[in-house]
Design a protein around this nucleic acid. Sequence first.
DNA 1: GCTATTCTAGACCGTACAGTCCACATATGG
DNA 2: CCATATGTGGACTGTACGGTCTAGAATAGC
Lengths: 192, 192
Amino acid sequence: MARTKEFEPEKALEAAVNVFCRLGYEHTSLDTLMREMGVARQSLYDTFGDKRALYLKALRHYRDGNHATLRDLFVAKKSVREGFSKLLFDLSRETREERERGCFLLSANLELGSRDQEIATLLRRNQRTIEGIFVDALKRGQAHGEISPRQDPTALARLFIAAIQGMRALARLNHDRKALENIATAALASLE
Amino acid sequence: MARTKEFEPEKALEAAVNVFCRLGYEHTSLDTLMREMGVARQSLYDTFGDKRALYLKALRHYRDGNHATLRDLFVAKKSVREGFSKLLFDLSRETREERERGCFLLSANLELGSRDQEIATLLRRNQRTIEGIFVDALKRGQAHGEISPRQDPTALARLFIAAIQGMRALARLNHDRKALENIATAALASLE
DNA sequence: GCTATTCTAGACCGTACAGTCCACATATGG
DNA sequence: CCATATGTGGACTGTACGGTCTAGAATAGC
């Protein structure tokens, strides 16, 4: 009945995630999106809606991937402490490209969180989700005697969230692996 | 010889800091700047240069103020531990307005750090300066037996920097004083 | 008070960009 | 193989904005 698409929507969305990550919402023009996604203007509007709708889809896609890797990190059988350690040290070892790409959720927060209510709500929910994942893992770690039971799991989870956001912000500016490892080590010491 | 200015350059610059903080570089139009600063278009160009030059002046002004308050926090006679405590808990207690204003240096990092070399350099230098202030304070704290000598002052300083950036990012999105206090408490526990 | 200088107000211009429209290409179903 | 529906490419449009220019107002020295 109709011509087939010449692009894969999934791949195209990932390309959108990439370019929005690197450039932010405002600095990403439709021309750039078309080029990076390999999608014609009209197809882009037909498939994803306008720029903001595409941004939201990209943001949700990124967030879902993020949650999946976090949940995977803390699947029941693994050591909780090792999970956090891997999370933080992987962050320290990111390539230049990954660092400069930065965290989509952080850049969305700073660029649009105070102006777009829908995005702000999404980001707040995301924070609660991640906090939940961390708290569950920490409680399990305490139950297994892996982590000191004297610490408040919620407070610890929040410290990790803040430290990770801070690391992401620093990493974007500076390629100083040692500095990131310092932060990772110091944060992990809180589990003692 | 000539007509006198109808605005105070100092006050106008502070107004610029405020509006750039809240809206970022790209989202701040010259019309907004003129209105908030109370300066006519031509006077603005004559006094501060173009938009980017004004942004840089505002950024330097903010940074200088920041360094001054930090140095004041750690003047020799005060307790180092109390200094960090005040720093972090003051952050937790910011008003809604202050929170939404956010940190100019953080937003400059995310918005322009990867695109404007001059700004990136300024921000990197700023990071080193703050790290230096923190390291000096921590060493003094260790010398006075206030802080455990087993910790690496540089690593601790970096953890605090990351935690503060994280707090600022979280605070911008959520007014959850308890969450911020949790982070402050957990970070301060690293001094034990 | 006249002149020179610097202020303010706002018209004007070029560019960049999001979004729409249109012409043409291509593949599916009958 | 024709009709239909959906794809691609690119021209077009309206708007927003940074930056410049011009005209008139106001103040200081002579």
